[in-house]
Design a protein around this nucleic acid. Structure first.
Lengths: 73, 73
DNA sequence: TTGTAGACTCTTGTCGACC
DNA sequence: AGGTCGACAAGAGTCTACA
């Protein structure tokens, strides 16, 4: 499975834990809502700057974002 | 300090620990050497796919790459 | 609320060359 | 070995609109 898909799944997982909509997350992170949809569905190769914004908005540390079974090799 | 700069510093740190050149790292990760230079110097907003390639080539886990003082908030 | 599509701008990422 | 430049194709990221 590609890293894009794994990142998308992890974002969706954390967003659901927070109980907020894609639009609310996009607003918090100050990025486009339709772009969040694409990222969650593994269709975009997100840059580190936008990934950091999303992870901040999800209120986790970068290292904890990647501390999930999917990311371990 | 921007995430681009932090990522660049961390890549350089880990590359130096491995004792390999930018060119050797670029070859291992299958990305362009001049691009590695720019990334290490914090001038490029790298995508998750290329960042994963570099981190693989540096032989660390994603979560360990981001488990450094610079990245903790 | 989420997903998709189209059109758009600007940057990523590659490559060759030179220092 | 590392840094920079210039040119380029490809893709990131935005926005409007509609289902």
């Amino acid at each position: 499975m590609s890293i894009k898909v794994k990142v998308g799944q992890r974002i969706r997982e954390l967003r659901n834990e927070l109980g907020i909509s894609q639009e609310a997350l996009a607003n918090k992170a100050e990025i486009d809502r339709t772009y969040v949809t694409d990222v969650e569905n593994g269709r975009r190769n997100i840059s580190i700057e936008n990934l950091e914004k999303l992870i901040d908005a999800l209120q986790v540390q970068l290292k904890d974002f990647f501390d999930a079974p999917n990311f371990i090799k």
